[in-house]
Amino acid sequence: MFADGLFIMFAVLAVLGAVGLVLFRHPMNGAMSFVVTLISLAGLYALLSAKLIFALQLIVYAGAIMSLIVFIIMFLNIQPDDLPKEETKLLYVLGGGILVVPIGLFLVKIVKSLPEHSTAIMGGNFGGVKEVGLLLFRDWLIPFEIVSLLLLVSLVGAVILAGKRGTTK
């Protein structure tokens, strides 16, 4: 019963944060409301007994990635005049909503065809660091190494892209 109340609270917060992200004009307001979404998603992961993913969501997503985005927004020093003028924003949001409704209804139909299942909190170290780590290094070793290669490539690419100092001009 308590878990149901927590689920409803986190779900409402996540949806409100996402709506704020879509509707706020300044990207800084959008980023702050997106952080609310990320933190409530971390709470939902905890309700699904995913302990490691809960910690990673808070540390990596809400901590590292969002602080990187907020840092870049502040670095560019955006004034209200620099933002694109979106007078017809609500019209576009309405049109996008109409576009998305068939996709959403299709997905809802798929979910309805699945059998219902309880998601009560599981004991027995389900989703703990040791269990997920063992699985990661036994069954998912090659994808894990490929992800490390991807991170290296993106690091080198970001340094090359952002580190140009007037050599081409």
């Binding site: 990207p27 959008g30 985005i69 927004i73 979106e86 924003k89 576009y92 949001v93 049109g95 996008g96």
Partner: peptide, 13 residues
């Protein structure tokens, strides 16, 4: 909501 944000908004961030 993410699709709506990508389709409807023009701000890069």
């Amino acid at each position: 909501l993410g699709i709506v944000g990508v389709v409807a908004r023009r701000n890069v961030f």
